[in-house]
């Protein structure tokens, strides 16, 4: 057991192999469930390509698992603002995802101006800004600006939601 856990430590990349494998199974099962009579005008049918894709995913999953167990490693991507020296900062990611989900839940009901404000404000705070009031004002301004910009400039009516009638 201990040897297994030490063997798995630092091998989070095996999760990628697992994901590929699961995706492959999903594609296979879904295609297998299709019922199609043989048709002369479409000898390939809707199943063939999903089967090929599923097979490809499975092969990649197995090879990737082997590669990782042998010590292979995918290289994390760098960038201008990326500092890979410190570990992943989940205290930033989770609130960020929270703000995003809140926006999804609110957008149709409360409208874009409110949900967009929450999205931007929440994200800025999650990313470490501490100018609460200034950030709030910028968020409201951005949401209002995009709302009217899309409506007047592009003819796209974003949902007004709770503020229907006011905007």
């Amino acid at each position: 057991m201990t040897s297994l856990t030490t063997g798995l430590k630092g091998r989070s990349e095996l999760g990628v192999a697992l994901l590929l494998g699961a995706a492959g199974v999903l594609v296979f099962l879904d295609a297998n469930g299709l019922v199609t009579p043989y048709s002369k005008s479409d000898p390939v049918g809707p199943k063939t390509v999903p089967f090929i894709v599923a097979g490809m995913l499975e092969v990649c999953a197995v090879l990737l698992a082997l590669n990782v167990l042998r010590g292979g490693k995918g290289e994390a991507e760098g960038g201008e603002d990326v500092d890979l020296a410190h570990p992943a900062d989940w205290k930033t990611i989770l609130p960020l995802a929270g703000a995003f989900i809140l926006n999804i839940l609110l957008i149709d009901w409360a409208g874009w101006v409110i949900s967009g404000t929450i999205l931007f404000w929440g994200s800025v705070l999650a990313l470490g800004s501490r100018h609460y009031v200034r950030d709030g004002l910028i968020s409201v301004a951005l949401s209002l600006l995009t709302f009217y910009g899309f409506y007047l400039g592009l003819g796209i009516a974003l949902p007004a939601g709770l503020l229907e009638g006011i905007l």
Binding site: D81, L96, N103, S123, V124, L125, A126, L127, L158
Partner: peptide, 16 residues
Amino acid sequence: LPRPYLYAGILFFATL
């Protein structure tokens, strides 16, 4: 541009 605004802005406009 301060990075919090930049990346919050990317998320904001991506959503939009």
